[in-house]
Design a binder for these strands. Sequence first.
DNA 1: CTACTTGTTCTATAATCGACGAACATCGAA
DNA 2: TTCGATGTTCGTCGATTATAGAACAAGTAG
Lengths: 112, 112
Amino acid sequence: MMKQLQHPRPREMTLTGVLGALSDPVRLSIVRELAGSGECGSSAFDCDIANSTLSHHLKVLRLAGIVQHRKEGTRCFVSLRPDLEIAFPELLASILRFHDTGDGNQRDRRLG
Amino acid sequence: MMKQLQHPRPREMTLTGVLGALSDPVRLSIVRELAGSGECGSSAFDCDIANSTLSHHLKVLRLAGIVQHRKEGTRCFVSLRPDLEIAFPELLASILRFHDTGDGNQRDRRLG
DNA sequence: CTACTTGTTCTATAATCGACGAACATCGAA
DNA sequence: TTCGATGTTCGTCGATTATAGAACAAGTAG
């Protein structure tokens, strides 16, 4: 039987939990990728980290209610969880509007 | 001479830094209070924590670029920093629209 | 000057976190 | 069944964090 990974119920999502999950650069880049590409195989993220570390970050995002996991054979597909938008409408979009410039600066997309 | 507390320049503010600073329930409640009441004396926050801990949290918020300190005699007044709105327009409002219910749930203000 | 007030910094501690390798589990293929 | 591929979990390590008390600094009042 395929093991089911635990997903929190919408009522268990917390604002501080979501913010904390997004406060890590690696996790934020993962969410950014998901927002741009939709569902991704969990090996499609070009993070230069160990597999176990990636799995850890995906677990944090999952337990915060931000992403959901779908198993297909041995592969694992990750996507943004629609329930997040219900619990915190427009929150994720409000955050992803800003992007890192790599040297510690951020910029509003509208400012070019 | 009155000691000046260090404030980061807007270019030094990071999105993950801001999110991380807001991911703590104590700090989020402080920011919420500042957004509602404007400038507050740093002893006006009804947090049930030690003075040194409050000072620590205010420092984290300050180094993230979220709040600014103004000294007046021995008193210290804290307020939201306008530069944050310039660096990340509407980000803070987008986050504060949701509030904790105390039992781990959050709710959009518009949903009653 | 000596208190007293306010707030920061220092030191310590317990908890959490990010990272990794190793072990484990699951599935598909040979 | 045995193997290989894909992910998760476990154990560990070092770094960071939240907390609070103690010491310190700066200003005010007496």
